[in-house]
């Protein structure tokens, strides 16, 4: 009996396909997690849409200004639609903040006026026409068989009346035009005033800026002066300390001068002393050099920012003071 016969062939690998499906599922889950779970897209800040309003209360003020000139014209009816429309137009215009205030005003005022005119014109015509018709009817009823001449006369009269009305209209229009011009003038004046005010403001700001700058400059200068005085003070202290340690060689002719270049460390220690200009007398030079080393912790200002001024010191010593 062979052992291989004991082996159950179906047992060799159960659930192979199921495992494959599960593995696939795991990977699909993983990819889904990577695609949807992690927010890969970094949404840029969208550039922050901001409406720049050069002057805040515009929407309230504008409907008021055109209302003034419209006072002589019939009551409130034609005026009402205006305040509704102008803000819309302004909003449309405003997103371009570069050319600020004056433009929207002009646009609104120009657009509004024709409306007023249109509404006014038709009204008087309608009122008069029905009158005429009534007259006509009466005349017809009374004098049905009157001659055409009379009619002609009437027509002539009518024409005359119409002419008069036209003249009236024209006068009205002229008046309106004058009013318009006045309005325009007023607005122009307002603009000029505004511009003047803006200029004044600018000038004032510029003045203020200049003054501030001057103040700042003065402060800086003062600070610099203070620093300079501090530096000078400590340089003098250093020189005094060195002078006090010099053992002067006796009886040198004239007033020889020696110059040393001293490199300092923070804290006053001396890193390097170099003779940059000899006095011509070796004894004097060496005496001064010794004195520099002897006065080793050189006095330095407590402010470490000032140390840069002392890093490389030029020390000039005169034989006679």
């Amino acid at each position: 009996m062979s052992i291989s016969a004991l082996r159950n062939p179906s047992d060799s690998e159960p659930k192979k396909i199921l495992s494959g499906a599960l593995a696939l599922f795991v990977h699909v889950m993983f990819i889904a997690m990577m695609v949807f779970g992690v927010n890969w897209k970094n949404h840029p800040p969208e550039g922050m849409v901001v409406e720049l309003w050069s002057e805040l209360p515009k929407p309230i003020s504008t409907p008021v200004t055109p209302a003034k000139p419209s006072k002589p014209i019939p009551p409130a009816e034609p005026v009402k639609p205006k305040p509704v429309e102008p803000p819309k137009r302004e909003e449309q215009v405003k997103p371009e903040p570069i050319k600020p205030t004056p433009q929207p005003k002009e646009v609104t005022s120009i657009v509004k006026k024709p409306e007023i005119e249109l509404k006014q014109k038709p009204e008087p015509v309608k009122e008069i026409k029905p009158d005429l018709e009534e007259l006509k009817k009466k005349e017809e009823a009374e004098k049905l068989k009157k001659l055409e001449e009379q009619k002609k006369e009437q027509e002539q009269k009518k024409e005359l009346e119409q002419k008069k009305e036209l003249e009236k209209k024209k006068a009205l229009e002229q008046q309106k035009e004058i009013e318009k011009q006045k309005e325009l003038q007023k607005q122009q004046e307002l603009q000029k005033q505004k511009e003047l005010a803006a200029q004044k403001q600018k000038e004032q700001e510029a003045k203020a800026r200049r003054e501030a700058e001057a103040q700042r400059a003065a402060q800086q200068a003062a600070a610099r002066n203070q620093l300079a005085s501090e530096i000078g003070k400590y340089k003098a202290l250093i020189l005094a300390k060195i002078r006090s340690r010099i053992v002067m060689p006796p009886d040198l002719p004239g007033n020889p001068v020696v110059e040393f270049k001293v490199t300092l460390l923070p804290g006053g220690d001396i890193l390097d002393v170099r003779l940059s200009k000899s006095s011509g007398h070796a004894a004097f030079d060496s005496a001064v050099e010794r004195a520099i080393f002897l006065s080793k912790p050189l006095p330095l200002p407590p402010d470490p920012a000032l140390f840069n001024e002392f890093r490389n010191l030029n020390i000039t010593v005169h034989y006679r003071e």
């Binding site: 690998e13 159960p14 495992s19 593995a23």
Partner: peptide
């Protein structure tokens, strides 16, 4: 890597079933 991962997961499940049974 994807292939390796898939194969390893396949074997993980196969072995899981085999060993459990």
């Amino acid at each position: 890597l994807v292939m390796m991962s898939f194969l390893s997961w396949w074997y993980i499940f196969r072995k899981l079933f085999v060993i459990r049974s």
